[in-house]
């Protein structure tokens, strides 16, 4: 942890601030959320690394998707993800978000989450222990340092493909596309 290194703060204050102020959305999709209360309370105390849960998507920059995702939940996940201000990071928690896990042949759970929203990293396991969340957070720090946690940029860049995939499962969605594709391309070109 390089939180106390002043030179790094002077060199890249934004990056450091995003690293050490990861505010996660309170969003519970499946059984994985049972690992979050011990993570944020006295036993493991995620707050010492600046990881705290926030109540609304607008205040957050970390989206922890904890467990299997049903079709109905996917709709809410996309809405929440699109409401979060950029830069934002997503972490899939548990094997269900990777390939469906034990629900791989279920009639109502989507199997691979990264077909619908961009994922910056996965925590494998069923269930992962709270320690795994910390491993993920430290790994996310490394990714932010190397500019590799770029899910939100990929979302903007490939928005047309993501939206097409979302509509394949959800049918007609009740909100318009958040990026016009040309606009998304322009922003991507400007900001890289």
């Amino acid at each position: 942890m390089d939180r106390n290194q002043l030179m790094k703060w002077i060199k890249a204050p934004t990056k450091m601030a995003h690293k050490y102020s990861l505010n996660a959305v309170y969003f519970c999709t499946g059984c994985g959320v049972i690992e979050v209360p011990p993570t944020i309370t006295s036993r493991w105390d995620a707050e010492r690394f600046g990881v705290v849960p926030t109540a609304t998507a607008r205040q957050a920059n970390l989206f922890l998707i904890t467990g299997y995702v049903s079709v109905k939940t996917l709709r809410a996940i996309i809405r929440t993800y699109e409401q979060m201000p950029e830069p934002k990071y997503t972490v899939g928690f548990g094997s269900c978000t990777i390939n469906g896990g034990m629900y791989w042949d279920s009639y109502n759970t989507i199997n691979q989450l990264d077909k619908y929203i961009p994922i910056d990293g996965y925590i494998a396991g069923c269930m992962p222990r709270p320690e795994a969340i910390f491993v993920a957070v430290t790994h996310l720090w490394t990714l932010i340092d190397k500019d590799m946690a770029d899910g939100y940029k990929r979302y903007r860049k490939n928005y047309a493909a993501y939206r097409a995939n979302q509509e394949m499962i959800l049918g007609e969605m009740e909100w318009p596309p958040i990026f016009q594709t040309e606009v998304a391309t322009a922003i991507t070109e400007r900001e890289g």
Binding site: R3, T14, M16, A17, Y20, D45, N61
Partner: peptide, 21 residues
């Protein structure tokens, strides 16, 4: 608990100022 460092609000505010809204 151990708790965040005393300057955690500063980090949060810096992060919030650099986010889009």
């Amino acid at each position: 608990r151990v708790g965040p460092p005393l300057y955690q609000p500063l980090i949060d505010i810096l992060r919030q100022f650099t986010q889009k809204s």
